[in-house]
Amino acid sequence: MPVKSIMIVGVGGQGTLLASRILGEVLTSEGFDVKVSEVHGMSQRGGSVVTYVKYGAKVFSPIIDRGEADIILAFEQLEAARWISYLKPNGKLILNTQKIAPMSVVTGGAGYPDGIIADLEDSGADVTSLDALELAVAAGSAKAVNVVLIGAMAAKTEISKETWL
């Protein structure tokens, strides 16, 4: 099987790292060659965080470059826009509609851009959006955003429902 590439993007503290680990374990149990690349340290502190998950018959590079991702799982709108150039032209974007203002917006230097979702749809990406925060809160914890998003993505992969459960 040719290598598939999934990028998980979000803001430090949202649980993107755990999401990539869960995904990596699931794919390993399916018998794929898997590589997951993480970011630790300073960039985790509320910064823009990106992790890469690649799987297939044989994976070499653990990272995903521009134009290479089959799926981007975005935990936040602005981060989806930041990393959209990494999606393949026919790739899928699964978007949490949550907005987290970066410090440059908070301190008033720049506004949080409007109309990001429409803009992403216009880019040619196949966009599926959902309010994962609302669903997570309804399920009992705002911290479960990552699990909600993995669930949304599970439907877009070839992994069987039984494996995920």
Partner: peptide, 16 residues
Amino acid sequence: KKTLSVKTSVPPRPPV
């Protein structure tokens, strides 16, 4: 490689 792009100008998000 061909890449997608958006019109939105994306403000930076440094760690805090």
